[in-house]
Amino acid sequence: MIKKGGKEGVQGLRIKGTCLCLLLGIAMMFILHIGLGKASLTPEQVVQALFDHGSDEDLRYIVWNLRLPRALIAVAAGLMLGTAGAILQVVMRNPLVEPGLVGASSGAVLSAVLWLSFAADSLVRAVPLTVVALFGGLGAVLLVVTLNAGHAGNRTRLALIGLIVTAILQSATSLFLLQGQQGLSTIFLWTFGSLNGRSWSSWALLWPWTILGLLLSMMYARKAELLQLGDATAAGLGLNVNRSRVMLLIIASGLTAATVSVVGAIGFIGLIGPHIAALLAGRKPPVLFPVSALLSALLLLASDWIGQSITLRLPFPGMENHQTSLPVGAVTTLLGAPFFLFLLRKSLLKNKA
């Protein structure tokens, strides 16, 4: 018979091994991601350019100024969306939940579009877009939770309400963009999310929010673990349930909003990453949060690598001859939509049983 301590030790080693494998996978995909482009680079050339060993000036320029910031932003966005999805799944006790399915992404996008369209230039310069997107994302999540009040245990109802609210917010975003004559290409970006054209200035906006959000999520991981036990049990153990739940929602919305303000609404990463992470490491937040973050970063890097391999022409007026790579959000949607439908069908069958 294996003692409890022995089981915990084996589980700890398995989790550490999982994290190490994910880190190695991210490193490998990071190099492959940087090597992909109009001028393909071998892994050896990428490493040489990154560490300035025997590479020429043009090669270093391509790697450091054109491709490295995009890869770093992909990793940061994946970390943030994976953590946000894990937090929402834990707080709502629903594995079908992710930032894009409870209105966080679409709410952040709509608030950002409204702010840029109607706020005075002085306010736009004074107030960071991430702050505006934060309030929009949080407001949308609270709206979904309120509409589902009294049916907290009904996972399917919550998911469907989230889909309806998200569709409404996305339609409103498209309407305001059209009225503002910002063009269909802008709608395409905000709706699907894209890493095209991201530079060091975008990275400078994103990395402080990444560090802050990830630190806060780990600080509240133990409280999230208590929330999993149920409100009555958590309160009996001395946890301020409402305050902790609201704070975790703010953290998840902040992570999502910061990502949206830089790369747009990238869907389903916050669903796939946490769900697979739970299968690999269990659903205890102190472990689930970091594993979800790493797995989602790997998935987003791989999705953007796939997207860059596919070139398409934009069918928008005046841009018929413009070519671009497939937005990463379109890739994650193509991968994530069937995954979500599978989980939804599984949940429906479970409810019938």
Results as ranks from 00 to 15, higher is better:
343 L>W: 01
334 L>W: 01
301 L>A: 11
296 S>T: 14
316 F>W: 15
308 Q>G: 06
324 T>Q: 13
316 F>I: 13
312 L>M: 13
286 P>Y: 12
321 N>V: 09
338 P>E: 06
295 L>N: 07
336 G>H: 03
331 V>H: 05
342 F>S: 03
315 P>Q: 14
311 T>C: 03
309 S>C: 08
340 F>N: 02
326 L>K: 14
342 F>W: 05
289 F>T: 07
322 H>A: 06
303 S>P: 09
291 V>N: 10
335 L>M: 08
302 A>N: 11
340 F>Y: 09
321 N>E: 06
335 L>D: 05
321 N>C: 04
304 D>Q: 15
304 D>T: 13
342 F>P: 00
342 F>K: 04
324 T>L: 05
318 G>A: 08
306 I>E: 12
312 L>R: 15
330 A>Y: 03
325 S>I: 03
317 P>G: 07
343 L>D: 06
318 G>W: 15
292 S>V: 06
295 L>F: 11
317 P>Q: 12
341 L>T: 02
325 S>L: 02
316 F>H: 14
322 H>S: 07
342 F>C: 00
311 T>A: 08
334 L>N: 03
294 L>G: 05
332 T>G: 04
294 L>V: 04
328 V>E: 01
318 G>H: 13
335 L>R: 04
311 T>K: 15
325 S>G: 07
309 S>F: 06
319 M>F: 15
344 L>I: 00
333 T>S: 15
289 F>L: 15
295 L>Y: 09
314 L>D: 00
294 L>E: 11
343 L>K: 01
293 A>Q: 12
321 N>A: 13
335 L>Y: 03
292 S>C: 09
335 L>P: 01
292 S>A: 13
336 G>V: 01
346 K>W: 01
313 R>M: 04
332 T>V: 04
294 L>Y: 08
323 Q>F: 10
308 Q>N: 11
291 V>M: 12
333 T>G: 12
328 V>S: 00
309 S>R: 13
335 L>V: 02
318 G>Y: 14
288 L>K: 06
330 A>E: 00
295 L>G: 06
318 G>P: 13
291 V>A: 12
325 S>Y: 03
332 T>I: 02
333 T>F: 05
323 Q>G: 02
288 L>Q: 07
342 F>A: 05
296 S>C: 10
323 Q>H: 11
331 V>F: 04
321 N>I: 09
335 L>C: 07
291 V>I: 09
303 S>Y: 11
312 L>V: 12
312 L>Y: 14
311 T>S: 11
306 I>L: 14
347 S>H: 01
342 F>R: 02
324 T>Y: 07
302 A>Y: 09
340 F>D: 07
340 F>E: 09
295 L>V: 06
342 F>Q: 04
342 F>M: 03
301 L>M: 13
341 L>K: 00
345 R>C: 00
296 S>I: 07
286 P>V: 11
313 R>T: 06
345 R>E: 08
344 L>K: 01
302 A>T: 11
289 F>D: 04
328 V>I: 02
301 L>D: 14
330 A>G: 03
300 L>M: 08
314 L>K: 15
343 L>E: 06
306 I>S: 10
304 D>H: 15
